[in-house]
Design a protein around this nucleic acid. Structure first.
Lengths: 205, 205
DNA sequence: TAGTTACCTATACCAAAGTATAGGGACGCC
DNA sequence: GGCGTCCCTATACTTTGGTATAGGTAACTA
């Protein structure tokens, strides 16, 4: 029966999750209202198999808290939990060695799955949480680009110069400049670099 | 006891995996040597809970096979399995609606985990397989950038102009130009847009 | 028919980006 | 001391990028 330590400053959230895990799956769950208490508890007698840290919690200071927890207790698996963190934070957490990332948007059943996953030695990263970035902004900004402007943008995203784009599209450089100018206005950015960055961010090319 | 249909043209691989799943976890496993046979089998009496398709297998034709399988049997979960596919393919598969992606580099235990995961209604995407792209090239190209050049690059990645960067760093615009010129050379690119794109690709900022 | 939109081109101009060369100050290293 | 490196600045220059205005074609639409 694995020991879990759940640290979250939101009392209601923390206690209900803990109760759920205990009753439904028979985990033994300890709780802590912030990082410092959590680390104290870790130093106690019971060996903790999994430490779940809320991302927004006193003492966390971004992902530094993750490092602190991992450093002192290498044998314990550490998962991050958050209700607000975006994909960037989640990725950063995983890159920094977290064993899992649990968005609070998960269903209870999925959360249990995730926890079991981590306890079994794997690293959990919810795919459906990782993906939205791609599908969140399907077009909107890019919808009203004309075909040529879109083609121009595409070449811009490889970092080509107007001259090169002109050659590739078989038109004059002045025309490319025109397309660039228009697409900058439509995208609401002020130069080609920003346009390329924006397009890449939206995973257009 | 869930029914699994495993389709792989590699006889040895297919049969050993099937045997493993049957003996270790009590799954009922059917097998098929290619996509067509798999789809035929699906039409049989037994309801298949999970279809596992090898990516390199007669009939697959890239990810088209995935679509064919999903279209005819919406109730069946479909996972892709591959020994060679890279991250791009895996992501594309997930984007096209696969319920899971199973690299053959997984341990047997992890594979079982993945399968249970998918059967429970979640989508499985192995983080350790997804991540390498980020960590494969930690620096190399960027290692020999000086501190100022790195700061300049960072601002470049927001699409700022030389003038703005100069203001932000508290130096003259000419100096920024110098840094830009030098970092372009070090990165082996020919303009600021390419530099920004490269840095973003490597997830530096 | 006239109006609209996308597309292409042209000339011209200014701003921004990038190159070249030169020099000075700070630091660490042999 | 001399050497190398990074940082900053300066002048001067060329190229590229972006804006403005104007005009022509083709296709679609009211």
């Amino acid at each position: 029966m694995p020991n879990i330590l759940l640290a979250d400053d939101h009392d209601l959230v923390r206690d209900t999750i803990a109760a759920y895990l205990e009753t439904i799956d028979g985990f033994k769950v300890l709780t802590a209202p912030n990082l410092d208490v959590a680390l104290e508890t870790m130093g106690g007698l019971d060996a903790i198999d999994l430490l779940i840290l809320d991302y927004n919690m006193p003492g966390m200071n971004g992902l530094d808290g993750l490092d602190r927890a991992r450093k002192g207790h290498p044998a314990t698996k550490v998962a991050l939990m958050s209700g607000v963190a975006n994909r960037e934070v989640a990725n950063a957490a995983m890159a920094r060695g977290a064993d899992g990332f649990i968005p609070k948007s998960l269903t209870a059943a999925s959360m249990v799955n995730a926890i079991k996953f981590v306890l079994s030695g794997e690293r959990y990263f919810p795919f459906d949480f990782a993906a939205p970035e791609t599908s969140t902004a399907p077009d909107s900004t890019f919808a009203d680009l004309s075909e040529r402007e879109m083609q121009t943008l595409e070449q811009l995203c490889i970092g080509l110069s107007n001259k090169e784009i002109a050659r590739n599209l078989g038109i004059q450089e002045v025309t490319v400049k025109l397309h660039v100018k228009n697409l900058l206005a439509k995208l609401g950015v002020s130069n080609r670099t920003q346009a390329a960055l924006l397009a890449k961010e939206r995973h257009l090319f």
